[in-house]
């Protein structure tokens, strides 16, 4: 199936490619995210597990050809959080006992630092697994997988329409903003001015969105969205026995980990 290139016309982070990760069934990638989360919160504790998962995700990103993109997004989103968490927990965590270093009367503690690092590693493991999914799964493939699995088309619509329609909404906001400014609306300056400028922006945006919603509902109806009988899908998602087996294995692992956590 030809994959469309990354386009500004939608809000996806998908990067076109033909790697094994791209070819993997979308449900397998989704289950892997879930499995990572369950391992982190219900599986064996400790930083070696988290480091192992992050390393595994890194290797997968490398072989999937999305390592650079994942790395860029990861450090941009995690750096501010890392600095914030290490500072807060290092200085203020409730279990702080052992002082690592001091700034005058301010003490930075080992327990808070370890706690922050542990939380960040957990977050990193889940986030990297999620990035593998969004970078290597075209939303159209996810929607087709949902349709092929016999789930309701409205679910697929709920998942995909924001990706396509939010950029259009953003464009409309900019257009309304430009139109209102050309008519003398001052949307710059202090908070009060900006707040007042919101009304002439929001009113046409909401009214326009309502009209568009009505039109789009009609458009969907006249193209048979609610037609009786089974639907088909042009995009077919490969789902080999091996992939199915992997999916079931992950599913049972998740169940086992949860049961193990309950009875531990």
């Amino acid at each position: 199936m030809p994959q469309p290139e990354k386009q500004s016309g939608n809000a996806t982070l998908f990067i076109a490619g033909k790697s094994w990760l791209h070819r993997l069934h979308p449900f397998n990638k989704l289950l892997y995210i879930l499995l990572t989360g369950v391992i982190i919160y219900a599986g064996p504790k400790g930083w070696p597990v988290e480091v192992f998962l992050i390393t595994l995700n890194g290797i997968m990103a490398l072989t999937g050809g999305v390592f650079t993109a994942a790395w860029r997004l990861l450090w941009r989103s995690l750096l501010p959080l890392t600095l914030f968490m290490i500072t807060i927990h290092g200085f203020l965590h409730a279990d702080n006992r052992i002082i690592l270093f001091s700034f005058g009367r301010l003490h930075f503690y080992q327990e808070g630092f370890v706690f922050a690092i542990n939380v960040l590693l957990q977050l990193n493991a889940v986030l990297t697994a999620s990035l593998l999914f969004v970078f290597c799964t075209h939303p159209a493939d996810l929607i087709s997988a949902i349709s092929q699995a016999g789930w309701p088309p409205s679910l697929a619509y709920l998942l995909s329409s924001p990706l396509l329609l939010l950029p259009l909404m953003h464009t409309r906001i900019r257009t309304i903003q430009a139109a209102q400014r050309s008519r003398g609306l001052d949307s710059e300056g202090n908070f009060f001015k900006r707040f007042l400028a919101l009304f002439p922006l929001v009113t046409p945006l909401v009214l326009g969105a309502l009209v568009e919603m009505e039109q789009r509902s009609i458009a969907l109806e006249i193209r048979g969205f609610n037609a009786p009988g089974p639907t088909t899908s042009w995009r077919t998602i490969a789902d080999s026995t091996g992939q199915q087996a992997a999916r079931w294995t992950m599913f049972f692992l998740i169940i086992l980990l949860i049961i193990g956590r309950i009875f531990r």
Binding site: P153, Y157, L164, Q215, R216, R223, A227, W234
Partner: peptide, 29 residues
């Protein structure tokens, strides 16, 4: 713009959308 389905990512898929809803097979689509 308001007539686009909001669920298909290429022009080909957008045009095929109605046929999928009516349950046509891949050859017909």
């Amino acid at each position: 713009g308001n007539q686009l389905s909001g669920v298909r990512f290429t022009v080909f898929e957008e045009i095929a959308f109605g046929l999928e809803n009516l349950g046509m097979n891949r050859q017909v689509i």
